[in-house]
Write a protein that binds this DNA or RNA. Sequence first.
DNA 1: GTGAAAGCGCTAACAA
DNA 2: TTGTTAGCGCTTTCAC
Lengths: 352, 352
Amino acid sequence: MPATIYDVAKRAGVGIGTVSRALNDSPQILPHTKAKVLKAIEELDYQPHAMARGLARKKTNMIAVIVPFFTGYFFLELLRGVQQEVTSHDYDLLLYSLDHRKDKVEDFIEKTLQERRVDGVLLISLPISDYYASLFIQKKCPIVLVDSYHPKLDSITVKNREGAYLATKHLLSLGHEKVAMIDGQLVSSPAQVRLLGYKQALEENGIPFRDDYLAISDFVSGQDGFNREAGYHAMARLLELGEGRPTAVFVSSDIQAAGAMLAIQEAGLNVPDDIALIGFDDIELAEYLELSTMRQPMFEMGKLGVERLIDRIDNKKAGDYKISFSTQLISRKSCGPPCASKQNNTHETVSA
Amino acid sequence: MPATIYDVAKRAGVGIGTVSRALNDSPQILPHTKAKVLKAIEELDYQPHAMARGLARKKTNMIAVIVPFFTGYFFLELLRGVQQEVTSHDYDLLLYSLDHRKDKVEDFIEKTLQERRVDGVLLISLPISDYYASLFIQKKCPIVLVDSYHPKLDSITVKNREGAYLATKHLLSLGHEKVAMIDGQLVSSPAQVRLLGYKQALEENGIPFRDDYLAISDFVSGQDGFNREAGYHAMARLLELGEGRPTAVFVSSDIQAAGAMLAIQEAGLNVPDDIALIGFDDIELAEYLELSTMRQPMFEMGKLGVERLIDRIDNKKAGDYKISFSTQLISRKSCGPPCASKQNNTHETVSA
DNA sequence: GTGAAAGCGCTAACAA
DNA sequence: TTGTTAGCGCTTTCAC
């Protein structure tokens, strides 16, 4: 059995209260006594039991991170940022990832909040209902949303609408008129908002929105459509338009764009000559595929999320906190050369 | 404040012992009484406090997973398997990832073992010293090593040596004679063992091992060399050999191979015509790069690791457990066509 | 400044 | 079968 605070007290010839004071750097203890205690601790290789401490202090020193797992590289980068920050603040991380097929985010929230009594929750890319938002506030349990938004809670987001707008605009500025979009399931908030940005760019350029130019990735059931297969099938549908097919596509995630690229190649077409492509995220893969994309600062978002969360926990800071990161256009080959080579498409303009 | 077991007892008109019995499905309780208690629990939205329960039961219901973070996609896949299994057994997962620049695996072990008192530890791709191996045994804390090995502990590994052997042999069978290897830092156990497999294949084919054909990835300091930059620089060194450069390279991880590929292209050379490449892992990227590789069953390893760990915890099963997964050759374009086109290299054989 | 004692919210052994 | 009580290992009053 590991040593307890009683063992230490006995060995140092003091009471357990004194040991506790030495442990917690209380000023209410003589340096001499403290030294004695520290020596006993050393000799017994004593380590305070986190659960016992947590029970007495009503603090677990754990934060929960809830993620939807299929987010792949995006999640990995984000988690790296999270981990770095968590570790440096001496908290431990309880990771929950939900499988949409069987888990509900609500169950995880209940579990972390009521059972585990974590000190704070970081919710990644997951929507939260008003009911649960209020619950967190009522229980005074700090929560930070990352890549998700709720008016009453701290949220760190990326400017999805702006990003989608800029991506579409980039395509437009290259001379494209027939610009389609491949999006994830609209239950996903980023998917919704990116669609808005796409439409806005179209509108500003006087190009009417076409239903058949919006391909929602819904191939793989139970997921949100942000995956390769879904991208592949969405592109395939666009390709079925034949001659009326788009000359450029804004895809709402790089991973879908990867699938789309494959579909284009299999159809004997070429990126960017036949169809220009721009994605969203800037995952590792994008660099290899020479895919233009809107970069999200994933690592930074994770890090800042934890920073803010711990600030709430330790310093009980209140107040609204909304941060929105801008996306950055990363221009690669998949969009083709600017303008010049697209002039041959200009005759289409007449009919538009 | 959330309801406690006392609140429930009062409301149901019973003692706290009875509530506890209802909670833990004890047979020592009348169905009628149990129903009464369950009703009170429902009404109060009571949830047992995990820490209090843990303290009394001497069981945390948490398992720790310790990973080196830079393992990228390999780790992500593995963690998916881990998560799935952990969740289905109603344990929670405490994630620790260590940054080699500042963390020591020993500190994490101490922390999880002594402070957090987790019920079990899953150590991924990380070596463990004899001292700590004994510590786990002595403390009777179950531990399972995944992608790592220790004679006294449960280990789930992949047949690294065999995999490396087969990869090298594949290159050899294609007609290559000048086969080099790019490896990670030799402190990494897989790196060591894969080197052995490479040498064995060479030897069996009567090809002498050449020092200048072994490029250790050591570019990025503080890491183990299993990353893109390191692969790039290792390949660059091989390329400096000029005409004496290898015609095929076995790279000890796909991510390094990706870097190597880039170096080859930048040198104006072509894969597989000038240099054939085979990697290890079969990460997502490999498919895109059309990189031949030895596939590791990552998801399965994670899942099995947890399965075994929980078996140890719940059923107190003892005994040695060593599982070794075989790797699978995934043949893609990066190795080029079999034999025929390599015949022009045969004249080199004379000097060998 | 320090020791003793009372909780924190549970489980489990012990009576009744 | 059920209620009572004594811990689990700590923090935190409260006296001294």
